[in-house]
């Protein structure tokens, strides 16, 4: 589908091929799907920034929105990490490589990269919401971008070591000196673990990042967010410098079907990324 055609009909997906599937966790309900565009013009047209999402289609089953886990600096594939839950995701988890799928996007805003540039970046995440942050970290660490950002500190918590996403990628990051990686698990694990033990908000407090010239990206389950925000405020982060990404049920992804609104804002077109200051103006319907 050409750029013009996509513009003319935003409901029609671009054909992609499922190139590889990686099981991410011990529970095997999280898999990362690597998709390759079939048409060169589609690949070029699909220019995105970390924080954006796309609708992935299995024709005959349906489509679902997922945050893009790859970085635009990784040219060859689009990555989506998907938890098995509803009808589309269950079917996705059953698919073999080589299957043709559809992608619509990129959709939504992104993390505010203009504002983030020049700042120290703190990333706080829990569970499988880490996907667009994988995109963000990869993006910032790319040699063409690294100079644009200050210190990068990552705090990533999961329930148990087996639930950690992107183990190999994270291991590579840990080798580097230009990023601080802090991993934590909720409870003392049975298996060997070289990270900390404790819940994300508590570990964050101990870590005590400075709010000075810093901006924080927070993605995680609602319960983690609820307890993390007070800690960030305690540490002195302003409401404009705390950036969150929302999830709501979506269908069209282009602000028309009417279901993902939070107050007057649609998560699909006005979000999914909002500052805490923005969210506090909205009802908590997410």
């Amino acid at each position: 589908m050409s750029e013009q055609a996509v513009k003319a009909n935003p409901y029609v997906p671009m054909p992609v091929t499922l190139e590889s599937v990686a099981i991410e966790n011990d529970a095997k309900d999280l898999k990362t799907f690597a998709l390759a565009f079939e048409n060169d013009e589609d690949r070029e047209q699909f220019s995105y920034l970390p924080g954006q999402f796309a609708e992935v289609s299995i024709l005959g089953v349906g489509e679902s929105p997922f945050g893009i886990a790859s970085s635009p600096t990784e040219k060859e594939h689009l990555l989506f990490t998907v938890k098995r839950a509803g009808s589309v995701t269950q079917e996705l988890h059953r698919l073999d490589t080589g299957r043709r799928l559809g992608v619509r996007g990129p959709l939504g805003n992104s993390f505010p990269w203009d504002r983030i540039a020049g700042k120290n970046i703190i990333i706080v995440s829990g569970g499988f919401a880490f996907t667009t942050l994988r995109s963000s970290i990869t993006y910032m660490l790319d040699e063409t971008n690294r100079d644009r950002f200050g210190d990068i500190t990552v705090l990533y918590g999961v329930r148990s070591p087996g639930e950690l996403l992107y183990k190999e990628t994270i291991a590579q990051w840990k080798e580097r000196s230009d990023i601080g990686i802090n991993l934590t698990v909720d409870r003392e694990p049975d298996e060997p673990w070289d990270g900390t033990v404790g819940l994300v908000p508590n570990v964050l407090r101990d870590l005590g990042p400075s709010p000075k010239g810093a901006i924080v990206l927070v993605c995680g389950p609602p319960i983690m967010i609820r307890f993390t925000i007070p800690v960030l405020k305690e540490l002195g982060f302003g409401e404009d410098d705390i950036i969150l990404s929302l999830e709501n049920r979506m269908k069209c992804g282009i602000g028309k079907c009417g279901r993902c609104n939070v107050g007057p804002k649609y998560v699909c077109v006005d979000g999914p990324v909002f500052t805490l200051a923005e969210l506090q103006q909205l009802p908590a319907e997410y």
């Binding site: 005959g60 069209c252 079907c257 279901r259």
Partner: peptide, 18 residues
């Protein structure tokens, strides 16, 4: 004007409807 999008499929052919 709220709508849903879903697929109807039979024998590997189908349609996406709203």
């Amino acid at each position: 004007h709220c709508f849903d999008i879903c697929d109807e499929e039979r024998h590997y052919k189908g349609r996406r409807i709203r």
